[in-house]
């Protein structure tokens, strides 16, 4: 089987907090316009791995060895601007994190302000498009000036997705985006992901194996800091190569 060329790829990546290696020697390639799920029990390093993809783990003092290559360029190279990198590789967090003092519109535009200067019309268009892609436009179009915290938890998370995609990144990282949501909210986010993969490369960390099976095209299984197995989701879930993967997805641990 020939691999499609990866949009973003980790090679022999080891991520440390201090001297502790949370992820060891992981090598995974992520193809364009696919949803890739990272699964594994708590503490297996999947979230840390996700955060190395846009260097957010450095915010809490982590570092890495190995490389992450985005479109042929190592994001850990010395000339890489963190600001530029994070605009190309956006991130959505576990809990919705709208900026509470900003309106719905301002929240979505927050990432645009940091970056290039846009005319008012262009900015309006980008905000509308991002909200549409995140499946929130119909619900909020009449109250863009309302406070973002007036939205429900699920709406807030879709607002955060809109905020992340408004600067038009290439890769979108989602760190257990539905962990704090009810089933309805979760379903809306999952539906949103289907639409998003037309425009973005998506990597999602999830605790929920059914979710991984539902939304992803490819899946990687992590266990105690090791990337155990990666491949098409169907294969991982029906015919895993590694006995540990099989034990996890059949519910024998985790």
């Amino acid at each position: 089987m020939t691999e499609p060329p990866a949009r973003i790829a980790a090679a022999d990546l080891t991520a440390y907090y201090g001297t502790f290696a949370a992820v060891k020697n992981a090598t995974i390639g992520f193809a364009s316009n696919e949803v890739h799920a990272l699964i594994g029990p708590s503490g297996c390093g999947k979230s840390t791995f996700l955060r190395t993809m846009n260097r957010m783990h450095e915010v809490v003092g982590g570092h890495v060895t190995g490389s992450v290559v985005l479109d042929g360029q190592d994001i850990y190279g010395s000339k890489v601007s963190l600001t530029q990198l994070r605009r190309r590789v956006g991130m959505v967090f576990q809990k919705p994190t709208p900026f509470p003092t900003m309106s719905i519109y301002q929240n979505v535009a927050a990432g645009l302000k940091v970056g290039e200067r846009l005319s008012r019309n262009d900015r309006d268009a980008r905000v509308e498009r991002a909200l549409q892609q995140a499946g929130l436009w119909e619900e909020v179009k009449d109250r863009l000036k309302a406070s973002a915290v007036a939205l429900s938890g699920g709406q807030q998370q879709r607002l955060c997705i809109a905020r992340t995609i408004a600067p038009q990144p290439e890769v979108v990282l989602l760190d257990e985006p539905t962990a704090s949501l009810d089933p309805m909210g979760t379903q809306r986010i999952e539906e949103t992901l289907f639409g998003l993969k037309k425009d973005f490369t998506i990597i999602i960390v999830t605790h929920n194996m059914q979710q991984a099976a539902r939304v992803s095209d490819t899946t990687s299984f992590f266990y105690i800091g090791q990337m155990i197995e990666t491949g098409p989701t169907k294969q991982i879930f029906t015919n895993p190569a590694d006995p540990q993967t099989e034990a996890y997805i059949t519910g024998r641990f985790g």
């Binding site: 957010m56 600001t83 994070r86 994190t97 600067p167």
Partner: peptide, 25 residues
């Protein structure tokens, strides 16, 4: 901390994160 991370995840510098997310909060 999630407010800082949210801002920095959007490509804000520490300075921008402080001014756009932390201080308004």
């Amino acid at each position: 901390a999630s407010q800082r991370e949210a801002a920095m995840g959007l490509g804000a510098t520490r300075w921008e994160a402080a001014w756009t997310a932390v201080v308004p909060y």
